[in-house]
């Protein structure tokens, strides 16, 4: 019998809860470490990014209006769906990232744990980042954190799944919506994460995932005036400069990490200070009885 012809997948973008191809029609061929074609992913254009931002902006008020508890539940549901797709993540990651299946499994597990962690923070970060302030008058005075809006995420090539989750989960859990560009070198995990999002009760538009070339899209991310913040991990100082210069134009909040940070360090990466850059502090004065 003839050898069966393998069916190669063309992964698509995840925009507004749907899986469109890039409007540009462009794709990138992904090869495994032995040079065999593994799959194709979309090469997103700046118009795809524009559509993603539009979707995220539309989805943001309703996402922020959900109860914190419900957002936590949905992030936990994402973790559940990732657990179910763990083998697929391990296979796709180990095909292109050096270190084999053992490394890949460790990464996938850490990524799931990170999502659970920030799912937990969803109804707790206000207690840690907010406060009751002493004031010299008959008032209660509270400071409460509120979501910033639409956050652009740029993920590095290091730990492509874990880093992506680490960058999107903190802004997401507070009620921000996210437009993320996944790793350029290892994009399949980003595309598979879209399939997780689509089956996790996440409303369409809350998470939007793009695959493509960092050099092409980075300037569009930084200069897009309707993105309120950027959460990125980059390897070069040039990329860092591009991000900070472009973002200065419309005063985006920017938090840039080094791509090579220890993504497995839970003392660092599970901290609520990953949430803090993408909340706005609102202070309320309320008359007290006495």
């Amino acid at each position: 019998m003839a050898e069966r012809l393998a069916v190669l997948k063309t992964y698509k973008l995840y925009l507004k809860g749907e899986f469109p191809r890039s409007e540009s029609g462009r794709t990138i061929e992904i090869k495994d470490s032995r040079g065999r074609t593994l799959a194709h992913v979309c090469r997103a254009s700046k118009k795809d990014l524009r559509e993603a931002v539009r979707a995220a902006r539309e989805a943001q008020p309703a996402w922020a209006a959900r109860t914190a508890y419900n957002r936590g539940q949905i992030l936990y549901r994402m973790a559940e769906m990732m657990e179910g797709k763990a083998d697929e993540f391990v296979t796709t990651l180990s095909a292109t990232v050096p270190g084999g299946k053992t490394r890949a499994r460790k990464e996938v597990q850490a990524a799931i744990d990170r999502l659970v962690c920030f799912g937990g923070w969803a109804d707790k970060f206000t207690q840690v980042l907010g406060c009751a302030n002493p004031v010299a008058g008959p008032f209660h005075n509270f400071t409460i954190p509120e979501p910033t809006g639409v956050i652009g995420v740029i993920a590095p090539d290091q730990e492509p799944l874990l880093a992506l989750i680490s960058l999107i989960a903190p802004p997401l859990c507070t009620g921000n919506t996210v437009v993320a560009l996944g790793s350029e070198a290892h994009p399949i995990a980003t595309a598979v994460l879209g399939e997780v999002c689509a089956t996790s009760d996440l409303p369409g538009g809350v998470v939007n995932l793009l695959t493509g070339l960092r050099e092409e899209l980075l300037p569009v991310f930084t200069e897009h005036r309707d993105l309120d913040g950027l959460h990125a991990a980059v390897a070069s100082s040039q990329d860092r400069k591009t991000l900070e210069l472009g973002a200065a134009e419309n005063l985006k909040r920017v938090r840039v990490h080094t791509a090579t940070l220890d993504w497995y360090d839970e003392r660092d990466c599970h901290s609520p200070y990953w949430i803090e850059p993408f909340v706005e502090m609102k202070t309320l004065w309320h008359p007290s009885a006495t």
């Binding site: 524009r50 931002v53 902006r57 569009v220 897009h224 005036r225 309707d226 134009e249």
Partner: peptide
């Protein structure tokens, strides 16, 4: 300007 605008523009 070459930049995508925001709703507050």
């Amino acid at each position: 300007t070459g930049r995508y605008a925001a709703s507050y523009d």
